[in-house]
Simulated assay, not measured.
Amino acid sequence: MKPIIYAFILSIILHLLIFLPIELKKEEPKKKKEEKIEKKSTLRYVKLMPKKVVVPKAEPKKEIKPIPKPKNYKVVEKKKIVPQQKKQPIKKAKKIPSSKPKKVVKKFKAKKKVAIKPQEKRKTIPNRSLENFLLSNPVPVDLDMLDAMTKSYIRTYGKEYENLTNVQKVFIQNNLKNIVSITRKYYRFPSLALKLKKNDYNVVEFYLHPNGDISGLKIIQKGKYSFYDKSIIETIEYAYKDYPRPKETTLIRFYIRYRTY
């Protein structure tokens, strides 16, 4: 048995001796390859430093000086709050009725106001001449005393002016110039007149009544262009509401000049 054991041990030793150098040879080229790889590598490692935390400098603490107490001061005592008492209502003394008998006052019913039309007002005036009714009005002034514009308007009446009453003459002398100026304010030139730029002249007449109405509106002397005649009639039909009112029906006559620039 002993020779068999020795033989087994020897075989093991031989096997170990044969295979160990082969494994060592195989391991050496790996180390060489690792060395070559280490030589070829150009990587550089950088160490990351921790960030510096900047701590703000602490400001020096300000010394708080105590506020000096005023030398001259008064100690105010707290007033006691007294609750207010409810005021009792003052009872008024009852009036003792006098023994005298009361006066009886009769109540009259107020009559309703009814608007009277101007035409009905004229019916209430007694039948007497307006000349006697209007004696308080001034006497008409001589034509020489009037201004040049009013004279030129009165000339359009011709001999008819002498047949007018004093009341009518006074109204014409005082208001004819104003009536023409009111008419001019309302007047607007027709578009055709502004295009052609033609000057013209015409004379208009109508009757002005005490209630402010007009009648018999017409053109006595026509101009060269019909659009001026139509436009002045339309203007008077709209502007007569602002005309002054006479005390009796009066014939109004004046001329209009049309000038375009």
Score class of each variant (00 low, 15 high):
residue 107 K to L: 11
residue 256 I to D: 13
residue 112 K to H: 14
residue 126 P to M: 02
residue 116 I to V: 12
residue 155 R to K: 11
residue 11 S to H: 04
residue 147 D to E: 11
residue 201 Y to W: 06
residue 169 K to Q: 11
residue 163 N to G: 15
residue 65 K to V: 14
residue 258 Y to H: 10
residue 121 K to M: 06
residue 92 K to G: 07
residue 77 E to M: 02
residue 140 P to N: 07
residue 50 P to F: 04
residue 199 N to S: 13
residue 9 I to K: 04
residue 176 L to W: 00
residue 198 K to F: 00
residue 88 Q to V: 12
residue 260 T to A: 09
residue 214 I to N: 03
residue 63 E to H: 12
residue 199 N to T: 05
residue 54 V to G: 15
residue 148 A to S: 09
residue 49 M to W: 02
residue 172 I to F: 00
residue 71 K to H: 04
residue 96 I to K: 06
residue 93 A to G: 08
residue 104 V to A: 14
residue 235 T to L: 02
residue 179 I to L: 13
residue 256 I to P: 02
residue 100 K to S: 13
residue 28 E to M: 02
residue 214 I to K: 06
residue 250 T to V: 09
residue 42 T to A: 15
residue 26 K to T: 09
residue 252 I to P: 05
residue 215 S to T: 09
residue 66 P to I: 08
residue 170 V to W: 06
residue 36 K to A: 14
residue 170 V to E: 10
residue 188 R to W: 03
residue 186 Y to Q: 06
residue 18 I to Q: 14
residue 220 I to N: 10
residue 7 A to Q: 08
residue 116 I to M: 12
residue 97 P to Y: 07
residue 33 K to S: 05
residue 59 E to W: 04
residue 99 S to L: 01
residue 43 L to F: 08
residue 236 I to A: 00
residue 235 T to V: 01
residue 236 I to L: 01
residue 119 Q to V: 03
residue 15 H to G: 15
residue 260 T to W: 01
residue 207 Y to N: 01
residue 65 K to M: 09
residue 68 P to R: 07
residue 228 Y to K: 06
residue 101 P to I: 11
residue 14 L to C: 15
residue 40 K to E: 15
residue 170 V to L: 15
residue 125 I to Q: 11
residue 59 E to H: 05
residue 152 S to T: 06
residue 60 P to N: 11
residue 225 Y to K: 04
residue 56 P to V: 12
residue 109 K to F: 02
residue 227 F to A: 05
residue 2 K to Q: 07
residue 146 L to T: 01
residue 61 K to L: 13
residue 89 P to N: 08
residue 258 Y to S: 09
residue 246 P to L: 04
residue 213 D to G: 15
residue 250 T to Q: 10
residue 257 R to Y: 00
residue 95 K to T: 08
residue 38 E to M: 04
residue 141 V to A: 14
residue 129 S to K: 03
residue 197 K to Y: 01
residue 238 Y to P: 04
residue 36 K to Q: 09
residue 143 L to E: 02
residue 241 K to V: 14
residue 234 E to Q: 11
residue 167 V to Y: 00
residue 197 K to V: 00
residue 166 N to L: 08
residue 249 T to H: 01
residue 47 K to P: 05
residue 2 K to Y: 09
residue 171 F to K: 13
residue 240 Y to L: 00
residue 18 I to G: 10
residue 235 T to Q: 03
residue 143 L to H: 06
residue 29 P to L: 02
residue 134 L to T: 01
residue 144 D to Y: 03
residue 158 G to E: 10
residue 209 H to S: 09
